[in-house]
Design a protein around this nucleic acid. Structure first.
Lengths: 218, 218
DNA sequence: ATTAAACTTTTGATTAATCAAAAGGATTGT
DNA sequence: ACAATCCTTTTGATTAATCAAAAGTTTAAT
């Protein structure tokens, strides 16, 4: 049996590097998982032994095809569960991440498939992240961070790349929801801020925060 | 954090002795959990340390009030999840037990509460087992095993006390569903069998199997 | 080219859960 | 009363995952 811990390492490697091209540093992985670098090293060795990652000591780690397949399935389970919690159980999108974090390791493929049916085979989760198919392929969109937009751009919100509860509450309170159309009213590189019009109201964001909101031209 | 393992020990102690009156033998608990007696002893010591059980060495073990409260909540989660899997996701009652066995340890109270709402605050799960309230009380019914019924008794099925998939499939195939009305057509203590009429058809059961089906007089 | 800084790996310990097998109580029959 | 039997408990080992801190590498700067 594959443990939750192993699933979390694989999933994190995938999220840090969805294209599977670059080597991920041990320290970066350790930080993402909130473990010490030494713990990450020893788990990486275990995963390499099992053929799930390729490890070049002192340089980094990368999923193998087998590891990537497992990781993508964990991500699929996570995102279907999130959407399910929001759309069927009526939970708030700001509170479903941690719940899904637990459930992703125990729900069976059968349950995921039933949830998928009930949800109508969605392609994206409540945060705008793509849901891998059962075969492991991911829909691709070309998005850009809101922070890259120029004054006057009118765009629609396609993804919120920050799972933090408070951030999501803030986004919700200010109408920054998936599909919402917004317009860039001001941008100040020096002050590190961007102002947008959302539902007729002005909202000011730091560029770091705006970088976690991804948009597409409407 | 309370581990799944601890939850399973507590739950099993509750299921073996719902009234909380008798001492459970280490060996009985070990068998129910499929662990060696030595493992059970050492966990029992841990639980006693934590104040969740009372342990009289060489005599047995019993839940404390605190342990019982935790156990009842695990049982509530298990049964709500089972009903949810059957009624909302459309799974077969014969396949939901193992799934619920996993989910009971990770679903939050909030999710359970949402499922409970969606299900309309049910009092019994798909096997006829009572669902504890959030406060930890259990509805009580007075049922008797089908094996105790006499020739000519007409009763309705209220509980199937056997979670085995094949047994449940058999029950389903023969119309032995919750609420079904059946009549005892024959009973033979020597041959250890009982014959009932279900949906006009005769069904023969061994008395051991009939003992796991509980009924109430209609 | 050498050294400092930054990172990674190794080492040694710890915790939870388990097992197999040895040792220790309790029960029952004669 | 005393084995024989049947449990239960103890002991010693193992596995997965982790941490803290020591040791080793790589990189980058002077």
């Amino acid at each position: 049996m594959i443990s939750s811990t192993v699933e979390n390492y694989l999933k994190e490697l995938f999220l840090l590097n969805p294209d599977g091209e670059t080597q991920i540093a041990t320290g970066e992985l350790a930080k993402a998982l909130s473990v010490t670098p030494g713990s990450a090293t020893s788990m990486i060795k275990t995963l390499a032994q099992a053929g799930l990652v390729e490890h070049r000591p002192h340089y980094g780690v990368k999923l193998t095809n087998e590891g990537r397949t497992l990781a993508v399935h964990v991500v699929r389970r996570h995102r279907i569960v999130e959407l399910f919690l929001v759309n069927i159980l009526g939970m708030d999108w700001s509170e479903v991440h941690d719940e899904a974090e637990q459930l992703e390791h125990v729900v069976s493929d059968q349950v995921i498939s039933k949830m998928d049916d009930l949800l109508g085979h969605p392609t994206h989760d409540p945060h705008g992240d793509p849901i891998p198919t059962p075969e492991g392929t991911l829909p691709v969109r070309s998005l850009q961070p809101l922070s890259f937009c120029k004054l006057g751009d009118t765009v629609s919100i396609a993804r919120i790349g920050n799972q933090n509860t408070n951030f999501l509450k803030f986004a919700e309170d200010n109408g920054l929801l998936l599909g919402a159309t917004i317009k860039v009213a001001n941008k100040n590189e020096v002050a590190d801020s961007i102002t947008i019009i959302s539902k007729g109201e002005e909202v000011v964001l730091g560029l770091a925060a705006a970088g976690r909101i991804e948009v597409e031209f409407a």
